Amino acid sequence: SHFELRVGTITLHFDNISEELAEELEKLAKNGVHADEIRRWWEEWLK
């Protein structure tokens, strides 16, 4: 499923992401983690 995450002024787009993972990314964003860090985390997870 597709997921969009708003982090400050940036909107990150994720394809084929589980609800659980989407929730984890939302938690990171709410805790003030920068969009670049979240994207890096996601790319690492995909490997």
Rank of each mutant, 00 (worst) to 15 (best):
S1C: 03
H2F: 06
H2L: 03
H2K: 10
H2C: 10
F3N: 01
F3I: 03
E4F: 06
E4S: 02
L5S: 00
L5I: 14
R6G: 07
R6F: 08
V7K: 01
V7Q: 02
G8K: 01
G8F: 03
G8M: 03
T9K: 09
T9E: 15
T9S: 15
T9Q: 14
I10Y: 03
I10W: 02
T11E: 03
T11H: 04
T11W: 08
L12T: 01
L12E: 01
H13F: 13
H13R: 10
H13G: 03
D15T: 09
D15P: 10
D15K: 10
D15N: 10
D15I: 14
N16L: 05
N16Q: 04
N16P: 06
N16W: 06
N16Y: 09
N16H: 07
I17E: 00
I17G: 01
I17F: 02
S18G: 07
S18R: 04
E20T: 10
E20F: 07
E20S: 11
E20Y: 08
L21K: 05
L21A: 12
L21S: 07
L21G: 05
A22M: 15
A22G: 04
A22L: 08
A22V: 14
E23D: 11
E23L: 12
E23S: 14
E24G: 04
E24K: 12
E24M: 12
E24Y: 13
L25Y: 02
L25H: 00
L25F: 06
L25P: 00
E26C: 04
E26L: 14
K27G: 12
K27S: 13
L28S: 02
A29S: 06
K30D: 08
N31S: 14
N31T: 14
N31D: 11
N31G: 11
G32H: 06
G32Y: 05
G32Q: 05
G32M: 07
V33G: 07
V33R: 11
V33L: 15
H34Q: 14
A35Y: 09
A35N: 03
A35Q: 07
D36M: 06
D36S: 09
E37T: 06
E37S: 06
I38P: 01
I38G: 01
R39M: 15
R39F: 12
R39I: 15
R39T: 12
R40H: 09
R40E: 10
R40A: 13
R40I: 10
R40V: 07
R40W: 07
W41M: 13
W41R: 14
W41L: 13
W42E: 01
E43W: 09
E43M: 10
E43F: 09
E44D: 12
W45K: 07
W45C: 14
L46K: 09
L46E: 08
L46G: 09
L46I: 10
K47F: 10
K47H: 11
